[in-house]
Nucleic acid binder design. Structure first.
Lengths: 103, 103
DNA sequence: CATACTATCTATAATCG
DNA sequence: TCGATTATAGATAGTAT
């Protein structure tokens, strides 16, 4: 979209498509967060990546996951089994919620 | 975010916030569509505007609604009562689906 | 109010390591 | 394949209309 005109069509090349996907997902989530903060609205973004089992979900997987991780990191003296209940479990739960009852 | 440094905080001024909201929602939807097309993934964006009864939902309210409208426009010889089953009804249906079972 | 304008800032495709 | 770089197209806050 920069040194060559954008065509807005499916990117056939696998590696190019993956790189573009990662860059754009990152910024799409960022934009969603900005809109939410700036305008005080509830916004939700869900992206089902091709090869990923867990879709990217905002706000859950981004903001809330970070919060969870920070929480557990700050409690490094916590019972290891409790700390094991972590990002993976949380993310799966988020996805189920997102699929089951919207955002 | 341009002539003044961005602060990424809630915009207090009502009119400014509304204008910013409209601009950003438009582009957020555009970005979502681009990601979906470029990378061949399913992406979904839902924004619950403050004063609007119907949230902005993509792909439903954007792509599919246009499809529906185009469909009815192309059938201008259709029974008027059938054409009356139009954008409004469809959008409500989309929102219900989005809220009820995800994207 | 809503649009249009425009000076800047941001996103990003291509490239290199 | 991923991260860093860079040049350019795109997004946007403030302002004008």
């Amino acid at each position: 979209m920069v040194r060559k005109k954008a065509k807005l069509a499916y990117i056939e090349n696998d590696s190019s498509r993956r790189v573009t996907y990662q860059k754009r997902v990152k910024n799409l989530v960022k934009k969603t967060r900005e809109l939410s903060v700036l305008c005080g609205v509830d916004a939700c973004a869900i992206i089902y990546g091709q090869d990923e089992q867990v879709p990217v979900v905002w706000p859950s997987s981004e903001e809330e996951a970070k919060r969870i991780i920070s929480y557990y990191n700050s409690k490094s003296d916590l019972d290891p089994s409790q700390r094991g209940f972590n990002q993976y479990t949380f993310l799966n739960d988020s996805v189920i919620k997102a699929k089951g009852k919207g955002c």
